[in-house]
Each structure stands twice: as C-alpha cells, then as structure tokens.
C-alpha cells in the first residue's frame, strides 16, 4: 500500500501543472466572488503551497499525525490563508469550498492515469486527506475567532471598572452591564486598591447601569460591601430604582446593613455626612 501511495504521489507531482490548472478553473467557476476578492495570483500561491504539501503528506501513513513536521508546516500555511480570508470577511464555507474544489482537480488526474483496479483506493485516500485539510482550515478559522473574542473580552474587562474620586475621601464606582463573579472580583480588587491608595472612607457603588439585579448580583454586591467594611470603609449602593427594590424584596434578598439610595446625589450627600464634610452654600 505504501509503495502504491508513493507511486500516486509521484504521479501527482508529475502532473502538478495540470492539477493546478484544473483547480484554478474550478475556483473561477465555483467561487467567483472569493477569487475577485483575493485575486488570482494570491490564490495561485496558496493552491501551489497546498498541493505541494498534499504530495508530501500523501504517502505518509494516516496514523502519523500532528507530530509530523510537514503537518505543522501546512498548519502554518492554512493559518495564513485563513487569517487573510477572515480579515477580508470571507466566510468559512467559502474557504471550505476553496479546499474542496481541489478534489475536482485531483480526481480526474487519478482517473486518467490509474487503472481501474487501484482507482477507488487512491480516490478514497486522496479524499480523506483533502477532507482533513478542510477541517484544519475550519479549526484554524475558529481558533482565530476565539482569539479575537478573548482579546476583546480582556479589553472590555480593563475598561469595565472605572474609579472616580468624587470628593475628598469619597470614591465612586459606576457599574455598567452584567455583574458576574469574574467582574465582581475585578471590581473588588479595583475598589480595595483605590480605598487603600486614597484612604477613602466611603465607596459609592452606582448600579444605575446594571439592567437586572437578581439574587446573584445582590450577593456579589453584599460581598463587595463587606470587603469595603473589612478595610474600614463604608459602602453605599446607589441607583436602586423602584423596579430593583421591588425585585429584591420579592426575591427575599436581605442586603443586610448595606446602605442604599435611589440617586447618586443622595448617596453623595450621605457620604459627605459620613465623612463630616459639607459643600459650601
């Protein structure tokens, strides 16, 4: 079997030009829009690279997988291809078509030069390798996406907890969006750091920007408040709208001795009282 595969590989490398021509013709017919975007020269460099790898990988046994150097090389090639196409808004199915159209270029060559007896075996193994290529590109596409998402998430986390020094020894933290445990952790760290640095006596947590306050969010808020308390600071929660007050009571959430107010200005007033300060008349 291995020697047969080698023969087929030799055959493919011999008729490389023919295969590439057929592939390009296929591409122009089947994915015209893609060709318009990336251009024929670019596509040619990819097809050539893929075919060369195909020929080196074809004789290898299927059990030899990812540790092989050639596989790693083709992964690099695919990530280049995938990256370029993704950045140009080409959908993954179009990339898959790009790879699959290779079949229609390779199979006729096999058909032409291999006699009937060995043909089906050759086509099956060639098909398998091409399928694998397509799966690889898809995986790489997904990984690229995943990376973008996690980067955005990190960027979002970084900007998600601003600390405002509203007055002497009073800090304010406006909370916006969903308050999950990860963000609560971050918010607590940021708040405690600010309290330590500024030696502030009062921290105002403004929840006007949190759309839904359920038991979980309430628990997170209580945790943050008790952390501030441990530091020796007071925690005031402002922005408790009527809807939130209703849900909290209906859910049976006990906020304990955390002080709450409806508006920021009420909270600030209370904070000023707590720190023994006054805004001039």
């Amino acid at each position: 079997m291995a020697s047969e595969k080698k023969e087929i590989a030799a055959l493919l490398s011999k008729y490389q030009e023919e295969i590439l021509d057929a592939w390009h013709r296929q591409l122009i017919v089947r994915s015209n829009s893609l060709m318009e975007i990336i251009g024929l020269t670019e596509a040619k460099s990819f097809t050539q690279g893929i075919l060369e790898h195909f020929i080196t990988l074809f004789p290898l046994a299927e059990t030899e997988n990812d540790e092989n150097k050639s596989y790693r090389e083709i992964d690099d090639l695919f990530s280049d291809l995938s990256g370029k196409m993704t950045s140009q808004n080409i959908s993954p199915s179009e990339i898959a078509v790009f790879i699959f159209s290779m079949k229609e270029a390779v199979f006729p060559i096999l058909q032409k030069y291999i006699d009937n007896k060995d043909l089906s075996g050759a086509i099956i193994s060639a098909g398998r390798l091409i399928d694998r290529f397509a799966v690889n590109t898809f995986e790489i596409y997904l990984n690229t996406r995943e990376k973008i998402i996690s980067e955005q998430q990190r960027a979002f986390m970084e900007i998600s907890v601003p600390v405002v020094r509203v007055w002497h020894r009073i800090i304010m933290i406006p909370l916006i969006g969903m308050l999950d445990s990860e963000r609560t952790q971050l918010m607590m760290e940021v708040m405690l750091t600010a309290l330590e640095d500024t030696q502030s006596k009062v921290a105002i947590l403004d929840i006007s920007g949190i759309p839904v306050v359920d038991t979980l969010v309430a628990r997170h808020l209580i945790t943050a408040a008790s952390a501030a308390k441990l530091m020796g600071a007071e925690c005031i929660i402002t922005g408790v709208r009527s809807r939130i007050a209703q849900t909290l009571v209906q859910l049976g959430v006990d906020l304990g001795d955390v002080v709450t107010r409806t508006t920021m200005s009420d909270g600030l007033q209370l904070a000023l009282e707590l720190t023994g300060q006054k805004i001039g008349e």
Partner: peptide
C-alpha cells in the same frame, strides 16, 4: 477596632467567607 487591613488580606478573608460582621474596622 481593627485598622489597616491590606487589600490582599481582605480578598482572602472574603474568599474564606469571613466577613467579621460584628467587628469594627477603620482604614488607619
């Protein structure tokens, strides 16, 4: 009154679930 708890300490205590409710605390 317990004063000057560091923020790392506070985070650890919160994780341990020790909120020390009936203890007075101050910043300094």
């Amino acid at each position: 009154v317990l004063v000057g708890m560091k923020k790392e300490v506070v985070l650890t205590l919160i994780h341990l679930g020790l909120t020390m409710k009936n203890l007075h605390t101050a910043l300094n």
